[in-house]
Write a protein that binds this DNA or RNA. Sequence first.
DNA 1: AAAAATATTTAGGTAAATCTAAAAAAAATA
DNA 2: TATTTTTTTTAGATTTACCTAAATATTTTT
Lengths: 221, 221
Amino acid sequence: MNYSTSEENYIKSIYHLRGDHQLVTTNELAAELKTRPASVTDMLKKLKAKKLLIYERYQGFKLSPEGKKVALGIIRRHRLWEYFLSVKLQFSWDEVHEVAEELEHVTSKKLIDKLDEYLGFPQYDPHGDPIPDQQGKIHAVKQVVLSEWPLMELAEVSGVTDQRSDMLDILKHQNISIGTKLEVKKRFSFDNSVEIKTKNSPAFIISEQVAKNIWVKKPGT
Amino acid sequence: MNYSTSEENYIKSIYHLRGDHQLVTTNELAAELKTRPASVTDMLKKLKAKKLLIYERYQGFKLSPEGKKVALGIIRRHRLWEYFLSVKLQFSWDEVHEVAEELEHVTSKKLIDKLDEYLGFPQYDPHGDPIPDQQGKIHAVKQVVLSEWPLMELAEVSGVTDQRSDMLDILKHQNISIGTKLEVKKRFSFDNSVEIKTKNSPAFIISEQVAKNIWVKKPGT
DNA sequence: AAAAATATTTAGGTAAATCTAAAAAAAATA
DNA sequence: TATTTTTTTTAGATTTACCTAAATATTTTT
């Protein structure tokens, strides 16, 4: 019921590569973990013995239901700490991951559930990835800031980071609100402004600053 | 400049046993760490090679100045996390230590300094132990709640936990404030109330509840 | 100060997690 | 399908942090 840091890292990486659907290969996992295939094989045997992995030699492998549960527990810890670092300690978006990689291996259940409560049961980490609940269930889907959304792919607005009134002003002015469906028509490399098209209005341009504060996801998810 | 969890635990234990003044013995440290003397000897060699320890075989050992600095860094992390767990996550007094034992090994300097700032640069952890600053300097001395102070030993009031007015009322009524010097004359086992004597007034009794909220330290420290 | 008791260290071994080099299996290609 | 290439596994080392048992220092007692 308690796993070493190393075991946890393997489980987490397997989940990140394929969830629990398709098979993962030894080389792939070795690359992901920056280790050697032979080391991976060793650990696979160990994880199989602990029934966290479905694995037959030379056949690839994936997480067992139990393994998936463990993975989601680790991911829960990781994302809660990322949220904490970002919101409470003012870490920037790109600094949180590295520190959370260490904090996630502190396994006290009480610590994590209390932290969750203290943070107000956040739905998303600072990268827009959903945070699993105490049972390991994920309720939301990945969201991304509009400034990173691919061109010509329908998106649905799921949230806004900066709630200041001048920010909300712009959204109101352009008739954007939670649930609005839109597409990014063009991204201008000069200032990273983006041209947006919604159903019932002509295309218009918003600045990178604004686009960075609008969260979007695949429509209807 | 970066030490394993095991190395950190040895350093911390040596500091807890003797600071950096007197010599520590192998058996003593083995008992403290619940390990075998032979294992201690192994680690002593390693720490000596890293110049954290002053050690000649069969002669006992103590931390070098560098070793002391490392120890104080670990203690700083430990105590800040204890404070966090207690104040922010509502852990009780006796639950904080175990979890802090794990959190203390996450070594990001930025994490700890930001956490310190976020907590408002606390002076004491929940057990009354002073928290070293960024340079590893300890500014305060250990304080203890009055309910735990030994009988017949002069104490100076250094703080009050519960700041509610009915609590402060009692203190005012008994003429107790920060800096007041007092002695515990008797502790009644029935209800753990204590008889207090200050210089300019006759002895009086306060309840355990009150005694638990008054912090005291050695006078003049 | 010699013997006995205690403390410490050395020698040699184990488990976890890594590695390299070689062998074996699977997949791709000619 | 036979050969070559790639992937995966096995075999055998290495490092860290432990361990036990035996040897050696030191300390205490007689």
